[in-house]
Design a protein around this nucleic acid. Sequence first.
DNA 1: GCCAACGTTGGC
DNA 2: GCCAACGTTGGC
Length: 152
Amino acid sequence: MRYWLMKSEPSEFSIDDLEKRPHQTEHWDGVRNYQARNMMRDEMKVGDLAFFYHSNCDTPGIVGIMRIAREAYPDFTAFDINNKHYDPSSKPDDPRWFMVDVQFVRKLKRTITLNELKGRPELNGLALVRRGNRLSVMPVTAAQWEFILSLE
DNA sequence: GCCAACGTTGGC
DNA sequence: GCCAACGTTGGC
């Protein structure tokens, strides 16, 4: 089993939105970065756990935990011309973009902010705290996972 | 294959 | 809203 961190802008889709979905499950659409796609498509497995990270908001940080509930399948929002993530180069018979389903596990007792994660030697190598990093899906080691939860 | 222009991400 | 840091695109 592996660990992950996945970013979402809470104004688009927040941990509270996920909690309220039927079965507390939703597809994680809109990833349009090859590195992130490859990790979702090739490495994420049902049962993996992921941090839910709120980006581009007042207090960026980790707000909860979710579980991968379905392995990668074509991101159909890329086929929908009315969707903001529409990509004409992704075709139903040759999809370019993929998504997984995620299921709510729990919220953290508090937001573990990006600010307090930065500069922690335990998190050296975590893409999130590397300067200029924009990856929206990234792997987290077991040690990094445990350390972050110990801050809760 | 190079690289300038452009678009996006996301912290601040 | 600004802008640095990237990733992608497309002309050559």
